[in-house]
């Protein structure tokens, strides 16, 4: 699914360190969602972060994934495409049968964490 990739965000580079995948991304401040979230005050919607994590997870597994559960997702720092046009998505997946569990985060690549995420996909 490429609902947001290519329009809301681009993946600049990827790496895999012992089963933990990192995606350097760029956010597009001109995406239509900012017309409404919020008028004159662009804030990246939390659910778009959840969708970016899904789309990056699909790149890891090269197949469509359904979000069957989100056990916990915390929004720690407000992400905006104005203050942060680049970010890093880190995903550690664990596969059990048909289910893929992931622990993920979105950070600025340094000290600031925007999102922490624990969820489950089914292929």
């Amino acid at each position: 699914m490429k609902m947001l990739e290519g329009s809301y965000f681009d993946v600049l580079s990827t790496s895999n360190d012992n089963g933990t995948y990192s995606f350097d991304i760029r956010l597009h401040s001109n995406h239509k969602v900012y017309d409404g979230h919020f008028p004159g005050n662009p804030v990246s919607p939390g659910v778009c972060s959840i969708e970016m994590i899904r789309e990056c997870s699909e790149m890891i597994f090269s197949k469509p994934l359904t979000i069957s559960a989100v056990s916990q997702c915390r929004f720690i720092t407000v992400l905006t495409p104005v203050s942060y046009d680049k970010a890093v998505i880190t995903i550690t997946p664990t596969v059990t049968g048909d289910s893929i569990k992931v622990v993920a985060s979105i950070t600025d690549g340094a000290d600031t964490t925007f999102v922490t995420y624990k969820g489950e996909y089914v292929a």
Partner: peptide
């Protein structure tokens, strides 16, 4: 009022 999601828990499809 301007509301922000702080946390999503136990979402189940």
């Amino acid at each position: 009022l301007l509301g922000f999601i702080g946390e999503v828990k136990k979402f189940k499809l």
